[in-house]
Design a protein around this nucleic acid. Structure first.
Length: 628
RNA sequence: GGGGCUGUAGCUCAGCUGGAUAGAGCAACCGCCUCCUAAGCGGUAGGUCGCGCGUUCGAAUCGCGCCAGUCCCGCCA
C-alpha cells in the first residue's frame, strides 16, 4: 500500500480582528501551536499540488531556507491571466534584494508543472500566471466522475465534532428564532459529516426551570389521571395545550401558586411532578420533530439541560478546587478577565445563584465537561445568535482557566445575525409575537404552490395534485433554507418570501432548475446516466466546456474552506456559479444534437454537473427534483 | 462608560491568507424561443468600497482615530 500524501489544515490564528466575530476560539496565548487536522488526499487538490511545486521551485532557485515561504497562490480574477496566479515574487523583492520580475523569472525557470499546466507566464510587476492544461483537466474530470465522492477526500482520523443546535425551549413553540440555528446547524453538520468527521448532533433543549411550573400545574388540573398512570397520555396539540395553560395562569391566582409550587416539587424530584414534566417534554419533542421532518433536518440527539443536573454541583466544586470561585453578594462566581461592568469593575460569571439555584452558564460548563470527558470530542460548534457572543466567550474562558478546554480541542461559537422583516426590523408577527416556525414554513410552501400553479396554467400543463404538492413543498422549504444559507452567516438578513422564491437569481429554484435541465436532456435523449461507462471520457473543446469543467473541479477547495470558517454561503456561491456556467454551456453547446464523440463527452459533462449540484445541494439540506 | 458586529451600485448581498480594470442577483432599459423546459441566455446603464490618517511595491481587505446603525454588559436563557 502506498503511503498517502498528507496535508495539514491549521486553525486560522485569531490575530486578525476581523476574525474574532466569526468564531470564538480558545487558544492559550498567541504562541501556542494550533490544533491541526491531518487529511489524507487520495486526489491531491490542484491548488495544493501547484503550491508544492512552487515551493520546490523557490528552494531550487533561492535555497532551502525559503522552503516554508508561502507562494501566495490564488485563483485569478480574470481568465486572461490563466487559472491561478502566484504573487510571491513581489513579496520577496525586499528580503532577496532583487527585482520582482527577476525573482519571478528564477522561479519559473525552476518550476516543473508541465504535467498540470501550460508554460507559466510572467506578467505585470511579477505575477506568475498558470493555466491548467487540457490533458490535466480531462484526467481530473475522469477521476472525479468515477468517484462517488466526486473527488472530495475524507479526514483521517475521523475526529469527533459536536454541533449543538437548534436547542429550543420546550416550554414554548418553536419560532422564528429557531430558523437560522436549525438551517445552519443542519448544513454545517452535513458538510462536516461528508468530510469524514464523526458528527454528533445535539439539541441542548431548555427542559428545566420555572417556565415548566405553569405547564405541570395545568397537566395536574386538566389530566389528573396522567400523574398516577404509567401510560403516555395524549395532551392534544402542543399549541392548544400552551394556550390553555397560559389562560389558566393569567386568570387564576390560585393556579399561579400551584405553578410555583410545581417548580419546587420538580426540583425536589417529586415523582408525580416528574411524570407530568416528562409528558410535557414528550409532547414538545414530538411536535418539534414534525417540524424538523417538514424541514428535512437530520435526526438530532436530544440532550436537554435536565441531563446535566447531576453534574452541576460538581462544576461548582471543581471551580472552587481550582481556586477560581469567589462568593459575592451570596452568589458563587468566577470573575472574568477582560470583561467589565459599567462601573469598570470585573464582571462575574455566576455559576450558583444566591438562592442556591443554577443558571445556564453552569449548565453550559457542565456540558463542556461532559462532552470532553464522555463524548471525547475534539471540536464543538455552537451555531447560536450573535447576541450571545459574550456569553460564549465568558463560558469558554472559564472552561479554559479551569483546565478543561485545552489546545487540543476547539470550542467554537459560530454566531449569526438576526432575521429581519422587510422593514429592516426584527421579524415579528402582526400582533408583535415571535412568528411560529411552522407557520413560516407553511407560508413558504403556499407561496411556492401559488407560483407553480400560475406557471402550469401559463404553460398549459396539466399535472397531478401529487406532483404539485411535492414540488411546492420542496421548492418552498428549499427556498427558505437557501435564502438563509446563501448570506454571510454573521450578518442580519431580510426575510422576504418574494425574494427567496424568485425564480431567477441566487435562489434554490434556480439551482434546482439547472439540475432539472440535465434530467430533461436525459429524458429527451433516453439516456440512462447511471449506466454510463467509466471508460468514456470527457473531451474539452469549447470555452464554455472549459469554464464549466474548471468550476466543477473546485468543489473540494470550497468544502475545505467551509471546514475552517464554517460559512455555508461559500457553498451557495459555488453552486450558483456552477449553475450559471452550466446554463451558459447549455445555451451554447448542443448536447443531443452534437456529433460523436462530442455528444458523449457532453453527456458526461452534463451528468457530472448534475451530480455535483445534487451533492452540493444535499450538503445544504436541499433535495433535487427530476421535473418542475 | 466598556466591548462586539455591521457600513461596498437605487435595493439585497459576494469579495478567500492584501494583488492586475471592485463582482453578482433584483429593479431599469435593449435584445434572444420553427432549436435539449425561456424557472434560461446575451447586452446597456449604475460605485468618492461610511470618513480620515497610517503600514505596504500594492489596501474594499491590515493598523489607529472618527461618524452612523445595531447587539451585549450581575444572579432569565
Amino acid at each position: 500500500m502506498v503511503a498517502l500524501p498528507q496535508r495539514k489544515i491549521f486553525w486560522r490564528p485569531p490575530h486578525a480582528t476581523g476574525w474574532k466575530f466569526l468564531e470564538t476560539r480558545i487558544i492559550q496565548g498567541d504562541s501556542s501551536p494550533f490544533p491541526s487536522i491531518t487529511l489524507p488526499i487520495h486526489m491531491l487538490s490542484t491548488i495544493a499540488q501547484l503550491k508544492t511545486r512552487l515551493q520546490q521551485a523557490l528552494v531550487a532557485a533561492f535555497g532551502a531556507e525559503w522552503a516554508d515561504t508561502d507562494p501566495i497562490l490564488v485563483p485569478t480574477n480574470n481568465p486572461k491571466f490563466g487559472d491561478y496566479q502566484a504573487n510571491v515574487a513581489m513579496s520577496l523583492a525586499k528580503p532577496l534584494k532583487m527585482k520582482p520580475r527577476a525573482i519571478a523569472e528564477s522561479i519559473v525557470a525552476n518550476l516543473a508543472v508541465s504535467d498540470l499546466a501550460e508554460a507559466p507566464e510572467i506578467a505585470g510587476p511579477g505575477f506568475i500566471n498558470l493555466r491548467l492544461s487540457t490533458a490535466y483537466l480531462e484526467q481530473q474530470l475522469q477521476a472525479v466522475r468515477t468517484d462517488p465522492r466526486l473527488g472530495v477526500a475524507t479526514v483521517d482520523p475521523p475526529t469527533r465534532v459536536i454541533v449543538d443546535y437548534p436547542s429550543p425551549n420546550i416550554a414554548k413553540e418553536m419560532h422564528v428564532g429557531h430558523l437560522r440555528p436549525s438551517i445552519i446547524g443542519d448544513c454545517l453538520s452535513r458538510i462536516l459529516e461528508f468530510l469524514g468527521y464523526d458528527v454528533l448532533r445535539l439539541s441542548h433543549v431548555g427542559d428545566w426551570g420555572t417556565p415548566f411550573g405553569m405547564l405541570i400545574a395545568y397537566v395536574r388540573e386538566a389530566y389528573p389521571d396522567a400523574l398516577n398512570d404509567d401510560s403516555d397520555i395524549d395532551l392534544g396539540s402542543l399549541a392548544s395545550f400552551y394556550r390553555n395553560a397560559k389562560k389558566r395562569f393569567d386568570e387564576d391566582e390560585a393556579f399561579q401558586q400551584l405553578a410555583r409550587q410545581s417548580v419546587v416539587e420538580l426540583q425536589a424530584g417529586d415523582e408525580a411532578t416528574l411524570k407530568a414534566w416528562k409528558l410535557v417534554c414528550n409532547l414538545s419533542n414530538r411536535t418539534n420533530q414534525t417540524i424538523f421532518d417538514l424541514m428535512g433536518l437530520c435526526d438530532l440527539t436530544i440532550r436537554g439541560e435536565s441531563f446535566y443536573n447531576p453534574y452541576l454541583l460538581d462544576v461548582v466544586k471543581a471551580l472552587d478546587d481550582k481556586g477560581l470561585l469567589v462568593e459575592d453578594q451570596g452568589a458563587k462566581c468566577v470573575f472574568l478577565e477582560g470583561f467589565t461592568n459599567m462601573d469598570g469593575n470585573p464582571l462575574p460569571l455566576i455559576v450558583q445563584k444566591s438562592d442556591g439555584g443554577f443558571n445556564y452558564a453552569t449548565t453550559d460548563l457542565a456540558a463542556i465537561r461532559y462532552r470532553l470527558d464522555e463524548d471525547k470530542v475534539q471540536r464543538v460548534i455552537y451555531p447560536v445568535g450573535a447576541e450571545q457572543t459574550n456569553h460564549f466567550a465568558q463560558v469558554f474562558q472559564v472552561g479554559r482557566r479551569a483546565g478543561w478546554i485545552t489546545d487540543a480541542v476547539a470550542f467554537i461559537h459560530a454566531p449569526f445575525g438576526n432575521v429581519l422583516g422587510e422593514d429592516g426590523k426584527k421579524l415579528k408577527s402582526r400582533s408583535g409575537d415571535a412568528l411560529k416556525l411552522e407557520e413560516m414554513l407553511e407560508e413558504a410552501i403556499a407561496y411556492a404552490r401559488t407560483d407553480l400553479i400560475n406557471r402550469l396554467q401559463a404553460a398549459n400543463r396539466d399535472e397531478s395534485e401529487e406532483f404539485i404538492n411535492e414540488v411546492a413543498r420542496v421548492i418552498g422549504i428549499s427556498a427558505i433554507k437557501y435564502a438563509d444559507l446563501s448570506q454571510n452567516r454573521t450578518s442580519n438578513y431580510i426575510f422576504s418570501y418574494d425574494k427567496m422564491l424568485a425564480l431567477q437569481g441566487n435562489t434554490a429554484p434556480y439551482m434546482i432548475n439547472a439540475y432539472v435541465r440535465v434530467r430533461g436532456i436525459g429524458r429527451k435523449g433516453d439516456i440512462d446516466f447511471a449506466s454510463l461507462s467509466d471508460d468514456q471520457t470527457i473531451r474539452l473543446q469549447e470555452e464554455w466546456e472549459f469554464t464549466l469543467a474548471k468550476h466543477i473541479l473546485q468543489l473540494d477547495e470550497v468544502l475545505a474552506e467551509i471546514d475552517q470558517d464554517l460559512l455555508p454561503n461559500r457553498l451557495c456561491q459555488y453552486l450558483f456559479e456552477l449553475s450559471q456556467k452550466f446554463n451558459q454551456f447549455y445555451e451554447n453547446c448542443p448536447v443531443l444534437k452534437a456529433e460523436e464523440p462530442t455528444r458523449t463527452s457532453r453527456i458526461l459533462l452534463c451528468d457530472l454537473t448534475a451530480q455535483t449540484i445534487k451533492l452540493g445541494l444535499s450538503l445544504l439540506g436541499i433535495p433535487v427534483l427530476d421535473r418542475i
